[in-house]
Structures are given as structure tokens and as C-alpha cells.
Write a protein that binds this DNA or RNA. Structure first.
Lengths: 220, 220
DNA sequence: AATAATTTTTAGATTTACCTAAAAATAAAA
DNA sequence: TTTTATTTTTAGGTAAATCTAAAAATTATT
């Protein structure tokens, strides 16, 4: 049985491990909004509990057990987000903080029933995949909007940034999940992308385009 | 902003205060499953924060602020119980522990939307009243089944014991909320009560009858 | 009212998750 | 390959919530 804090460490290590194999102390500290010294304390403890492998100065990796725990938390977080949006009519930019709390509720039964109640959703309101109860993720084939060439089209199926300002911005532009888009131009000057969506033309910055995930309908 | 633990203290003091005006250290300790010495520490802290009035050796009472906080927690607890039973098909004897965790989720918006989603229920699955967002309880007029005389009838509208064995027992006997009953006999010997429910006769012990709450249809 | 029993508080420790400041190890630059 | 910069760890300490054991206050009993 882990504490709230331990669970947060595992979750953060899990997410960091999606980018780098050996997760560093400073990276964890930044995500946890704490100091590196505190992280060292905690990772020692997690290592003792067999949740991570830890070699001094070399960063950490999750053990099987640690990874399972992390995936369970991710699953809970995303299911609660679906609940908040689908059932309680929260907007996609309002759900993160609440889900951050709800993800620590311990009952297994609760999550299985919630999953069923929600119709076994495979993605959360931001398009992130929801692992099933056996911790298996549906295969998803995302491509970043920024990687599309002029003429390419696809469907918006996710975002890789969950900050409220970013999501509100997308919403204002009509760039929500499920929308069909086509790249009509890529500006040489600043790399901003001109896209067609529902017969309108919108221009988005490179920075925005980097965080929109597209399931491609194939090139041109 | 209170900690999880502080909230539990306030909630427990609130419930104890329904029976006695000055809530004693030992009583709190028992409910909190902790030691009196720990309680003394905590009530000092709560008193400093202005959540309770505390005179050494004289027990505590909730201040206005403390009471409000406690009612908010009770409201959350009961709304979540309704959610678990009505939406996720939990049984009434399975919801307490999970609701005990859920009641500490902080978002006000969440609770208001949950309340609406559930259709603004006025009682939880055990018949306990749910305060509205202004902390007002619906007036309820309960009478204990044990207080009914032979011939009296009424509707089961609550229970004053939430333990799983007790609730399972009631369910087996068909004594669930909303059921119409009539007292057909009270045994002199052991005080057990014979009742008629849906044309069946069931006999319940004094102990059980004490914890069933009836909204009376008037005497005889 | 004096004694006994109970309740409550104090004193001093422990554990968890933090912190700062300084030392040690590793990585990058001259 | 030294020197410098960065990262990480150690050492020592703090605050929250708990504990045990003993002292003090209150309540009950003779």
C-alpha cells in the first residue's frame, strides 16, 4: 500500500520514462515541485520497497510492480476525467486538478464499475489512451500536426499539452477532438501552420501545432 | 484549508455533537481509532484555527466555521454514496469506506455538478438527509421502529447503523428503504418485534428494531 | 470529605515528507 | 586533461500526526 505522495512519484516517473530511459532526480524534482534532496530521500524509499531500480547518480527506472502501480493510477486519472467531462459536463481544460485528487481513491471495485458506467472508454478527453484493467493500452497511431505537409489531412485525436490556456485556445479556434483538418499551408517565415477546418481557415503557431495529435488519413 | 485528518476530526466531532453537547476527548479517540493523547494534540490545533471551542478538561464544541466545514464533508460523503448506489450499482452496505475517501475531494464545482447529476437527492442510501449547498437539511421526522406499538404502521426511511452485517441482515429480511411495514406484535419476553411487510411476517430483535427508522403514517 | 476510578493532559519520542547548506560525483568546456 | 559547471547526495533539521508513560484534573464512590 502506497501513500498519496509515493503514488505521485511513481506516476511522474512513469510519465518521464516515456521520454528517457533513466529518469533523473532533477527532472522528478521539477515535476513534483519539490527539491532534488527530497527526491533522493523518496527514491531511496521507493527502491527499498521494490518499486523502482535505483543506482546512485544514475537515475531510476520503474520495476514491474512500480510500473503496474503507475499504470493503475494513470488509468484512474483518465477514467475520472472521462466521468467529469461526459457525465458532469466539465470542459476538457477544467478536469486535470480534480482528477489529480480522484486518481488516489483506492477501491478496485470502484474503478471497474466506473469503467463500465462510462462504457469502457479507450481515450480520455485529451485523447490519451486509457489502459484496460489488465493494464493494456489500445494501440494508437498519432502524428504531430507539425509533422504534416501541405495538403495532408487527418482527424484531431489528441493533445500533448493539458494546460488550461492551451486547451481554451484550441477550443476558441474550434480545434477539438474528432475534428477533421487539412493543412493548407506552412509558413516559411515562422513555421506557423494554416489549416482548413469545417470550411474555415485558421492559422496556428508552430508551438500550438506541436501539441496537436492527428490520426492521419494518409498523405495528400 | 484543512488536512484530510483535520476534516475527519471535524466530521466525527460533528456526529458526536448530535448526541452530547460537549464532545469528550475519549469519545473522539474511539471514533478516530487513535489515542486520547493524540486527540488532545489535535483539538488544540483545531481550537487555534478557530474551528472548535475548547476548554481544557471540558471537551469541545464546533464553532460556526468548524460546523460548516463538517456539514460540507457530510454533504460530500452522502452525495458520493448516492452516486455509488444509483449510478455504479453498489449495494448500500458497500459504499461507506469508499465514500469515506471521496468525501475529502476538495472541488466545490465537482460537488455542485455531482448533486445536479444525481438529481439533487435529499437522502443518501441509508436515509440520512443530504444538506443542500447552503448547508440546509430537509426536515425529517423519523421515529425508531422500536418505539412503535402493536398496530402502528409506517415506511422504512432510514437506518441508524451503517455496518455491513447489519445492512445485509436487513436486506435478507426484505427491510429496505421505502418498504411499508406494520407492527403486528411486540414480544414481552425479549422485546423482539413481529412485523408485517409485503404480506410476510418477520421477527426482528430489539437491537435491530432500534436502528430502523420509520416515517410514521400515524398511530394504529 | 477523603479515597478511588476515570478522564484528560503533558512530556518526550517516532515517522513521513519535506527543507537548506554543503559535500561528492558526474558531465561539459577550456 | 584540468578546470568549471551541473547534478546528485549527505547531513542535519522542521512540522504534522501519531505514540507511550506518567502526571494532573475531574468525577464517582465509599
Amino acid at each position: 500500500m502506497q501513500s498519496y505522495t509515493e503514488e505521485n512519484y511513481l506516476k511522474i516517473i512513469y510519465h518521464l520514462a516515456e521520454k528517457t530511459t533513466n529518469v533523473q532526480t532533477n527532472a522528478i524534482a521539477e515535476q513534483m515541485q519539490t527539491k532534488p534532496a527530497s527526491v533522493t530521500d523518496m527514491i531511496k524509499k521507493l527502491a527499498e520497497k521494490g518499486l523502482i531500480d535505483y543506482v546512485k547518480y544514475q537515475g531510476v527506472t520503474l520495476t514491474e510492480t512500480g510500473k503496474n502501480t503507475a499504470i493503475d493510477i494513470v488509468r484512474k486519472h483518465r477514467l475520472w476525467e472521462v466521468f467529469l467531462v461526459d457525465k458532469l459536463n466539465f470542459k476538457w481544460d477544467e478536469v486535470h486538478d480534480v482528477a489529480e485528487e480522484l486518481e488516489h481513491i483506492k477501491s478496485v471495485e470502484l474503478i471497474e464499475r466506473l469503467d463500465e458506467f462510462l462504457g469502457f472508454p479507450r481515450a480520455d478527453p485529451h485523447g490519451d489512451p486509457i489502459p484496460d484493467k489488465n493494464r493494456r493500452f489500445a494501440k494508437t497511431q498519432f502524428i504531430k500536426l507539425i509533422e504534416l505537409k501541405t495538403g495532408d489531412s487527418g482527424t484531431i485525436t489528441g493533445v500533448s499539452q493539458h494546460s488550461s490556456p492551451f486547451l481554451k485556445h484550441l477550443e476558441k479556434l474550434g480545434l477539438t477532438l474528432g475534428k477533421q483538418i487539412q493543412v493548407s499551408d506552412v509558413t516559411d517565415f515562422d513555421g506557423s501552420v494554416e489549416i482548413r477546418i469545417s470550411d474555415k481557415q485558421v492559422n496556428i503557431s508552430r508551438e500550438v501545432a506541436k501539441h496537436i495529435l492527428i490520426s492521419s488519413n494518409g498523405k495528400n
